[in-house]
Computed example of a mutant assay.
Amino acid sequence: MDGNGRWAKQRGKPRLFGHHAGAKRVREIVEACPKYGVKYLTIFGFSTENWKRTQTEVAGLMSLFRMYIRKEARELKRQGVRVRFIGDRIKLDKKLRDLMDELEALTEDNDKTHLTIALNYGGRDEVARATQRLAEEVAAGRLKPEDVDEETLPRFLDTCVLPDPDLVIRTSGEARISNFLLWQSAYSEYEFIDTLWPDFSEAVFAEVLAGFGSRERRFGGVKA
């Protein structure tokens, strides 16, 4: 969900103004998912690299996350949205971690839309943490080294209960994946668009999905 800061700058506003606009856009896209057959949606809220931003922006983002959870929790429950969080929670403040836990518990029985929010998330960090847990299993004798293969590691990833993404969309004209779902997106389709995230409307979403629907996915094979 890139481009909040530039969107705000274009309007002579501070970056946090753009982040608030971006948060409102999330709700629209989540609500649109069932209409287009999207069962699983993962949004990149805050990366492990985003701590490098100014203290003011980071503090503002953390406040926004807390406010968003409090404000949207009951509506997400009502709409049948199940919420999960991925990423390393240790560095997040306790109030935010508690709210995350509460939202996950509140929506755990929902199954209409599965919304995953990546907070303090990085693909490399996730793989490193997963590898550490896998190594602990080997050291404890619960897993043999020769049994470790590409089917084993995913069981230790943050996304172990989720399907791999079919489509990854990056907004704002940036053409890089920026450490997002590195393992899971090995065979994902990618769409890089110029639209800034606060302008990413349902109409733009529908257009991107329509384009994805016309692609031929071979997963390394050749169509007969």
Rank of each mutant, 00 (worst) to 15 (best):
R89L: 02
R89W: 00
I90L: 15
K91V: 11
K95T: 13
L96D: 03
R97C: 12
R97P: 13
R97T: 13
D98F: 12
D98G: 15
L99C: 13
L99H: 12
E102G: 13
E102V: 03
E104I: 02
L106C: 04
E108P: 03
N110K: 09
N110P: 10
K112G: 09
L115F: 08
I117Y: 04
I117C: 10
A118P: 08
G122I: 05
G123F: 02
G123Q: 01
G123N: 11
R124S: 01
D125V: 14
V127N: 07
A128F: 10
R129T: 09
T131Q: 06
Q132T: 01
A135D: 12
E136H: 15
E136P: 14
E137Y: 02
E137C: 03
E137S: 06
V138S: 10
A139G: 01
A140D: 10
A140E: 12
A140W: 05
G141D: 10
G141Q: 05
R142C: 09
K144L: 05
K144T: 06
P145V: 12
E146Q: 15
D147G: 13
V148D: 03
T152L: 11
T152C: 09
L153S: 02
L153V: 05
P154K: 11
R155T: 08
R155L: 06
F156H: 01
L157A: 02
D158F: 11
T159I: 01
C160S: 11
C160M: 14
L162E: 14
D164S: 09
D166A: 06
D166C: 01
L167I: 13
I169N: 08
R170V: 07
R170T: 10
R170D: 11
R170M: 06
S172T: 03
S172F: 04
R176M: 00
N179Y: 08
F180A: 08
L181I: 00
L182G: 13
L182H: 10
L182W: 14
A186P: 00
S188F: 01
Y190W: 04
F192V: 09
I193M: 14
I193G: 11
I193E: 05
D194N: 04
T195R: 02
W197T: 05
P198L: 09
P198C: 06
D199Q: 02
D199I: 01
F200K: 13
S201V: 06
E202I: 05
E207W: 15
E207H: 15
L209K: 10
A210I: 05
G211V: 05
G211H: 04
F212A: 07
F212W: 13
G213L: 02
G213H: 15
S214E: 11
S214R: 09
S214W: 13
E216V: 14
E216A: 10
R217Q: 04
G220H: 08
G220A: 08
